[in-house]
Design a protein around this nucleic acid. Structure first.
Length: 634
RNA sequence: GCGCCCGUAGCUCAGUUGGAUAGAGCAUCGGAUUUCUAAUCCGAUGGUCGGAGGUUCGAAUCCUCCCGGGCGCGCCA
């Protein structure tokens, strides 16, 4: 068992022992160690005395005094904490704890490894992360932003903690809407209107929308005309429109049949459309600094020949039943609870009365594949919060069907990491002026452009090509951090104007802190002739934690492993964002108050240089785990 | 009608297992650069934590009810 560098863990075990010694009748009790909110009171506090007071029948301050008497005498605690006395007890019975500078130094030193204090997982899991979720023949737009950014960040944190991650881009590439656009493209190609070889996603996007319109007849309008007898002209126009739409729809349905039968001509067109879509999606994700590769794509089409089998299986085992001609899985039984232990009154429909399958059927197949084929013990879905009920139904149905059962008797954890909407500054869903969805490429372009203006102004001396790279990184970091730093479940307001300031709690602020550290290291080498290579001696220099800013920085760094764990457990990237912002803030204060290269003496300089280096590595690691790009200077 | 999510400073948001005087950023005001990048730092102003009850030594946090906003709810995805 390696020594933990987490002060809370050390204090927890010490105070646990002290409490057991002071009150043997209680046995094991959580000492309730937390970081102090106010540095003036201490670094950490133990809140156990208040909670124990009633159980042992003594006033909280007396309980605290008894624990302090035992804890103060423990060698383990004496080594790391300032002496504990009655003065350590404050208020109702809070025990304030202050760590010694040299204890912080040795904790930092033990964390100063390539893993940065992050322990290997007790069990290496395979975790499937559903992310991105694009549709065939459609440009990635702001609706895919969060699914991509959040899903990628979650995938990264699981990987960082040592798990195996399977990314699944659940591509919407099957069904009638897809057949509509495929029919249109196939017809246009046959008529020589378009060239499949040079077709681009923009063309497909337009064709998709047009196909949707062409297949949608104004049946209600026609009915109204007939009912109210609004004249032969209106009637004729509507009849023509409706019959045209009916024709197109019939053509789409026949295309769907051909597609499902892998008709060579139609299937080739469809494959071409899929290729164009996936290539573009991968390219946009790369610009977003999100890892989504072509091989991470798992289209709905890839499940198409499993759906019948799944439905048969559920029917044969009496899990699904008929209801109004459709097949449903009822989920209102005692064992069919959602994540919060609530009963789900709405059944999960797995087959329509016309025999067609639904997205719930596909998602069941997805769960089965992820658990059985990939061996995933955890399934995480970064999908819009509005699909919450859908996922609760599908999860409950999958559990009922045993599709989440793993070999060995355990049941895979199914989790919907839902997220709120991206809003414009008017508080309504973020759209362009004309009401269209904002394309991600346009979003990135604008952030890049706005960042360029700043970079050109502030860093005019850097070469053009580097300035451009920095601007793109700053823009992308701004977009991603703005998205990740809020509570996932809430809607958030997207504002270039606020983002372009690049001040305060923003992605660029974090990048800036990192760039300043890199700058110090460059100067150390260039001007002080200090070796800053991978095995440089300064990386083993004794750390001296003396100034308040050094202490605050040290305490922040030590929280890193816990911050990663917390983000992964809650599937909440904003926890790591908060940590990184605290760390960057602690560094900025340190930077301001504690000269590094011009420190009073050599030891101080080397200690601070090592502190900078460690901070820089934690920042880099954390930013990378969130999926934010970094730059060496800016 | 039922269900889910949300409501914290002028604005945008944090707030850990229930813990001390509810915190940041932006905005406003005032300071800091002969010294490692001022995209920075230090300080000030700013609060009926939507409301009312309840549980508790202690509630923004847990429970109940109400108000307000958003989103869902059997054959779209």
């Amino acid at each position: 068992m390696s020594e933990s560098s987490d002060p809370i863990a050390l204090l927890d075990s010490a105070f646990r022992a002290a409490t057991a010694a002071a009150f043997p009748e209680i046995g094991d009790a959580d000492p309730l160690i937390t970081a102090s909110k106010q540095a003036a009171l201490g670094d950490f506090q133990a809140n156990i005395a208040m909670s124990l007071s009633k159980r042992v029948g003594k006033p909280p301050r007396d309980v605290a005094a008894a624990i302090v008497a035992k804890a103060g005498a423990m060698p383990d605690l004496q080594r790391i904490a300032e002496p504990l006395t009655d003065k350590s007890i404050a208020g109702h019975g809070f025990i304030n704890i202050r760590l010694k500078g040299d204890a912080l130094a040795s904790l930092l030193a033990s964390m100063d490894t390539p893993a940065l204090g992050v322990p290997a997982p007790e069990v290496t899991e395979t975790i499937a992360v559903d992310l991105c979720g694009v549709n065939l023949a459609k440009q990635m737009h702001v609706g895919h932003l969060r699914a991509t950014i959040i899903g990628d960040a979650l995938a990264r944190v699981f990987e960082r903690l040592g798990h195996k991650v399977v990314r699944q881009n659940h591509l919407g590439d099957w069904g009638l809407p897809i057949a509509m656009v495929t029919a249109k493209i196939a017809a246009d190609a046959k008529a020589g209107k378009i060239d499949l070889a040079t077709l681009r996603l923009d063309d497909l996007d337009r064709a998709y929308k047009q196909a949707q319109r062409e297949c949608t007849g104004d049946e209600a309008g026609l009915a109204a005309v007939e009912r109210f007898d609004l004249g032969p002209k209106a009637r004729a126009e509507l009849e023509e429109q409706v019959s045209g739409a009916r024709e197109k729809l019939a053509a789409a349905k026949s295309t769907l049949v051909k597609l499902q039968a892998h008709d060579p001509e139609i299937y080739a067109v469809w494959q071409r459309i899929a290729r164009i879509t996936v290539d573009e999606c991968v390219a946009v994700c790369a610009r977003l600094h999100a890892t989504v590769r072509a091989e991470d794509t798992a289209g709905e089409s890839s499940y198409s020949n499993e759906l019948g089998e799944i439905v048969d299986d559920l029917v044969n085992r009496n899990i699904a039943e008929e209801s109004d001609g459709a097949l449903v899985v009822r989920l209102d039984g005692p064992g069919d609870l959602d994540d919060r232990g609530q009963r789900i009154s709405e059944p999960c429909i797995i087959r329509k009365s016309d025999g067609g399958f639904l997205y719930a059927t596909t998602d069941l197949a997805g769960i089965r594949r992820r658990v059985r084929k990939f061996g995933a013990s955890r399934l995480v879905y970064a999908v819009d919060a509005r699909q919450s009920l859908h996922f609760q139904q599908v999860f409950a149905a999958a559990r009922k069907a045993g599709y989440a059962d793993m070999t060995g008797g355990k049941v895979a954890t199914l989790r919907h990491a839902g997220f709120g909407m991206v809003l414009g500054e008017d508080g309504r869903p973020f759209k362009t002026r004309s009401g269209e969805n904002v394309k991600l490429t346009d979003l990135i372009d604008e952030a890049h452009q706005r960042a360029s203006a700043e970079v050109n102004r502030r860093s005019a001396a850097l070469p053009d090509a580097e300035r451009d790279r920095i601007a793109e990184a700053v823009g992308v970091a701004a977009i991603k951090y703005a998205d990740l730093c809020n509570d996932r479940m809430k809607d958030y307001v997207f504002s270039f104007d606020r983002m372009v300031a690049f001040e305060g709690n923003t992605g660029p602020y974090l990048l800036y802190a990192f760039a300043r550290i890199k700058s110090i290291l460059r100067k150390a080498q260039a001007e002080k002739r200090i070796d800053t290579g991978p095995n440089a001696p300064f990386r083993k220099a004794p750390l001296a934690i003396v100034q308040p800013q050094e202490k605050t920085l040290a305490l922040a760094i030590l929280r890193y492993p816990g911050a990663l764990k917390s983000m992964a457990e809650a599937c909440e990237p904003h926890r790591l964002c908060g940590f990184l912002y605290d760390l960057a803030g602690a560094f900025s204060s340190f930077y301001d108050a504690c000269p590094v290269l011009s420190a009073d003496n050599e030891q101080t300089m080397l200690s601070r240089l090592r502190l900078c280096d460690l901070t820089g590595r934690v920042l880099y690691d954390g930013l990378t785990t969130l999926g934010l790009p970094t730059v060496e200077r800016m």
